[in-house]
Simulated scan of single mutants.
Amino acid sequence: MKLYQLSKENGKNITQFESNFIMSRIINTEASASIGCMYLEENGVIGYHQAVVPQLLLILEGKGYVRNEQEQYYQVQPGDAVFWEKDEWHETKTDKGLTGIVIESEQLNPAAFMPLK
């Protein structure tokens, strides 16, 4: 498991087409990818299981805890990105609720765009 940080500071200011915003890249893959939004309510849990493919969880709202094979939990909050390798055991849980985007693909390399936390 690796923890990355989503941040505006690592983004690029986009001005084309009279735009004015910052784009922070997250991932690029040539393999097919599955992208979903997960909503964990109060005391929600994504049970301890093996990742079928590499997975990247982007925390959008709320706070929670993640772990891998080690029994130590790490707190996550908006702006955090958690990466698990294929076959890595992991779990996500929350006391008060958490919303996140999960990206799953055979080819994920979050280190290409985001710094480690």
Rank of each mutant, 00 (worst) to 15 (best):
V52A: 15
V53E: 11
V53G: 00
P54W: 14
P54D: 14
Q55K: 12
Q55F: 08
L56P: 02
L57N: 14
L57Q: 07
L58A: 02
L58Y: 01
I59M: 10
I59C: 11
I59R: 03
I59E: 08
E61M: 09
G64M: 09
G64F: 01
G64P: 00
G64V: 06
V66R: 05
V66Y: 08
V66M: 01
V66N: 05
V66G: 03
E69H: 12
E69G: 02
Q70N: 13
Q70L: 00
Q70H: 09
Q70P: 03
Q72V: 12
Q72K: 12
Y73F: 13
Y73W: 11
Y74K: 11
Y74C: 09
Q75H: 10
Q75P: 03
V76L: 07
Q77L: 02
Q77M: 10
Q77R: 14
P78V: 06
G79N: 01
A81L: 12
V82M: 05
F83W: 05
F83C: 05
W84K: 03
W84M: 01
K86R: 15
D87S: 15
D87F: 01
D87E: 12
D87H: 15
E88H: 10
E88Q: 14
H90Q: 07
E91F: 03
K93M: 14
K93G: 02
K93Q: 15
D95L: 12
K96N: 14
K96W: 00
K96V: 09
G97L: 10
G97H: 03
L98D: 02
T99E: 12
